[in-house]
Amino acid sequence: MKEECDTAVVEANNKSATYALVVDLLGKITGLKDEETFIAQMLDLFMVLFSPERTGFVPLYGGSPGPVISKPDGAYPGMDARDQFLACQENYLVTGDGKGFFHQVWYDTDLLGIVHIDGISFPDRIAEYLTICHFVAQVAGLSLANARICQKLTDTQGERDNEITERKRAEGALLLAKNKITLLGSITRHDIQNHLMVILGNIALARVDVTDPAMEEPLREIETATKTIRSLLDFGRVYQEIGSHGSQWQQIAEIISLADVPKGITLETDLRDLSVYADPMLPKVFFNLLDNTVKHGGHVTRIRVSQEQRQNAVVIIWEDDGTGIPAGEKEQIFERGVGKNTGLGLCLIRKILAITGITIRETGEPGKCARFEVLVPAGAYRCDHQPK
């Protein structure tokens, strides 16, 4: 039974990791309207997905090739570098050493470019990489076509009507692609969650049937890994919603009043009718700060939320009397997967705030207190009784 549980955990973990990467990174490149920015983001995406030694892209304009664009820069020296890309006459071409491949990027009947992935670490997974690349290339083709159409609209006023029609067609296709990604994420999460429930159920049964004390530790490790996967899936679900709805004015004191503060902790506020223009998920910022304080603050008895005016910005300060954050971890705690738990809460906080240009940092004194400063720039806050 332990072997079956281990296998199920590994499979579920692999599926969730692939889903998180593909959906997260694709969401960042779809809809970009600048071709140069799009190509750079696309190459970054391939570097993250496949960890190759280098990746490059040759754009095609009506069959005429442009220069080689690469990550890292200058990874394709020599006059014949571009010819290597153009040798790919099919949808894809695996290189002779089996450690890379070329893949065409199409939109409708137009070949927009050719991408090269070279020096992958796991050549035995090249078939899996090609499947992922094929899906990414379809969405990338839509995005690149949209970027080029937007550029034409800027440069060529005489063809405005026809180009707007093309842009709408491309944007409609992009919306369909994004909806498919969302549906794929929902189905994948549901499927993985079902498998995780089976694993947790089998663990509970195993604890009843197994009498060997030596099996308790392996079962506990499997249970912990399974719950971690479930947490990652929840992170993907929440992350997918960030920025999907319009920002709005929200009163901070009203949000804080909804916080479920545990017994033994006093929460004080001094916010003076402060309202902030932010993503609708702003309440999750403060609820996650509270969760972080309770879980990692030590023996916290007091939390104070206040505001300070600093030149053309307002700083919202969340401060407790707990154990604080070590000096070497003040920035790392906002990275995904870093910290005493999964690090997902603080990672989400920074991304939610960044949508309207708000930043957050930790400035507390290690061993004495944790202090989070949320800097709200001019135009994103107000301190009066203006109607929302």
Rank of each mutant, 00 (worst) to 15 (best):
V261M: 04
L25E: 02
D73N: 09
Q332N: 13
N14P: 02
Y76T: 08
V338N: 00
G339A: 01
N202T: 15
A127N: 13
I333E: 02
R82I: 15
I181H: 04
T211L: 11
P366D: 13
G357K: 05
G364F: 05
H103S: 09
D83E: 15
L289V: 07
G364A: 09
D321P: 03
G62K: 13
A20R: 01
G96P: 02
D291H: 01
C150G: 02
E163C: 01
A327Y: 03
I317E: 05
P262V: 01
T154D: 12
N14C: 05
S244V: 10
D80P: 05
T356V: 08
K28L: 05
A259V: 13
E36P: 10
D321C: 01
S247Q: 10
C88L: 11
T301W: 08
N202K: 11
L153K: 00
D291I: 01
G172Q: 04
M42Q: 03
V198P: 00
V136K: 02
Q138I: 10
K2C: 06
L232W: 04
Q248F: 08
G357P: 05
V238K: 06
I114E: 00
D34G: 07
Y92L: 09
T323Y: 00
F101T: 06
G324D: 07
Q250S: 09
H116R: 13
K168W: 07
I199D: 00
Q41L: 15
R230I: 01
R148Q: 14
L200T: 05
A206I: 01
H299D: 15
C369H: 15
I360F: 08
P123R: 02
E362W: 00
R169V: 02
I349Q: 02
T154Q: 14
Y107L: 04
L233D: 04
L205S: 09
L25D: 01
L112R: 09
E35R: 09
A177L: 04
K368H: 13
I120S: 01
S186Q: 11
E308G: 11
M79E: 15
L258K: 10
T211Q: 09
L86T: 15
E171Q: 11
T228R: 09
Y239W: 07
C5L: 14
E331N: 04
D321S: 02
Q311R: 15
G66D: 14
I358H: 05
K340D: 10
E335P: 04
G343P: 07
E217A: 15
P67I: 15
E373K: 05
I187V: 13
A147L: 08
R148G: 10
L142T: 13
D209M: 10
R169A: 08
V136G: 06
L258Q: 14
R220S: 14
V315W: 06
G298D: 04
I355S: 08
N288F: 04
V208C: 09
G96A: 12
Y381W: 12
G264H: 11
A313K: 03
P280V: 03
G201Q: 03
T30V: 14
M1T: 12
P213C: 06
G337Y: 06
T226H: 00
K180C: 11
Y277G: 08
L219S: 15
A8S: 06
I352H: 04
N202L: 14
Q104F: 06
Q104H: 08
W249A: 12
